[in-house]
């Protein structure tokens, strides 16, 4: 698989064909991109238009969504999962992870609340991937105790 990514077939002096696997969705189309002087001329093998966009991005400026966790004080659980609101350039991932590692939060947390604005200077925010109540709590989804109607009891 890793060898596949590096396959470069020189077709003439300037053009080359790069093979890559689309990771936009789980279908995983095998793409063949024709590039010349760092520009993508043509993409084949994609079954939707997102495949073409992926190939162009991947060859010119690869991006990834980063997911991690942030410590939360006073929460129902010790960690809140977070993600970048959009994919960020691959070379910014390490810096983004460092900023995420330093961040702390206080409960309650709402889903999609901004945790770090403009992470690693990418213009993309890091947002919460879930809600987190203070303790066992008020929001029934999280830490609800058993819900029972006693008149049904014999």
């Amino acid at each position: 698989m890793s060898a596949e990514m590096d396959t470069a077939v020189i077709t003439d002096k300037t053009k080359e064909i790069r093979e890559l696997t689309c990771i936009v969705c789980p279908v995983g189309c095998s793409l063949q991109a024709t590039i010349e002087d760092g520009n993508v001329l043509d993409v084949e093998g994609n079954s939707c238009k997102r495949g073409r966009e992926y190939a162009v991005d991947e060859l010119c400026a690869p991006k990834r969504t980063v997911t991690s966790t942030v410590r939360v004080e006073g929460g129902f659980l010790p960690l809140v999962p977070v993600r970048t609101a959009a994919p960020i350039p691959k070379e910014k991932i390490d810096q983004a992870l460092l900023e995420v590692a330093k961040a702390t939060l206080e409960a309650p947390v709402r889903i999609h609340q901004v945790i770090i604005a403009d992470v690693a200077g990418t213009g993309v925010d890091v947002i919460a991937s879930r809600s987190m109540t203070k303790t066992v709590g008020t929001y029934p989804a999280f830490g609800a105790k058993t819900v029972l109607v006693h008149d049904a009891c014999v």
């Binding site: 999962p81 889903i111 991937s129 989804a141 609800a144 105790k145 819900v147």
Partner: peptide, 26 residues
């Protein structure tokens, strides 16, 4: 393209809105 917790929360909210009763730690 959601994370697991986001996908869960989407359906947790729908479940509560529908009037399903839940028993946790059970």
């Amino acid at each position: 393209e959601l994370t697991g917790p986001e996908y869960a929360e989407h359906f947790i909210n729908k479940t509560f809105d529908s009037g399903v009763e839940t028993m946790l730690n059970t």
